[in-house]
Amino acid sequence: MDDLAFYIFAAVSLLSAIGIVASSNIVRSAVCLLGTLGGVACLYFVLDANLLAVIQLIVYAGGTLVLMVFGIMLTSKSPWVGFRATRGQVAGAVLVAILMAVGISTLVLTAEWSQSANAPLKTSPSVAEVGEMLLTDYLVPFEVASVLLLVVMIGAAYLARTEK
């Protein structure tokens, strides 16, 4: 059943990712991004990373995506303006992307991972365990990240203000 779930959600996220690239309308790209984010969140559920899945949904889909659509609305004169790259640029980019996908996949498939790669070895950490790790082993990065968020908040507010 887990295998079936993987294939379904992987297909959803891949197809939406292709949709993002293929669509010339930026709002449609953003909607496709919702599909990818949701698919990846479901993959996290399949991987027993429940906390991460809901964080993905609440931060990315509920926050970042709304922010992006907001940005699109504020920065486009007409809804249907699309800027397209030239044909040569697109061809080059596609070539590079295909090379990259093939290269990374070959590398991944031929690599010798230290552990058996086909059987999950450990049950994933529960929410309580992740929380405990955040507040013990990873306390310094956690605090630094909170300071960073504060700085980002102030910085974004400063950047986006209107000139008087």
Binding site: V54, L57, I58, A61, G62, L65, V66, V69, S126, V127
Partner: peptide, 22 residues
Amino acid sequence: DLDVALIFILAMLGIEVVGVIL
């Protein structure tokens, strides 16, 4: 009975807004 049920519900209520904007 998810161990993250509360955040899950909040996330779902948050996604709803994307539909409204669209």
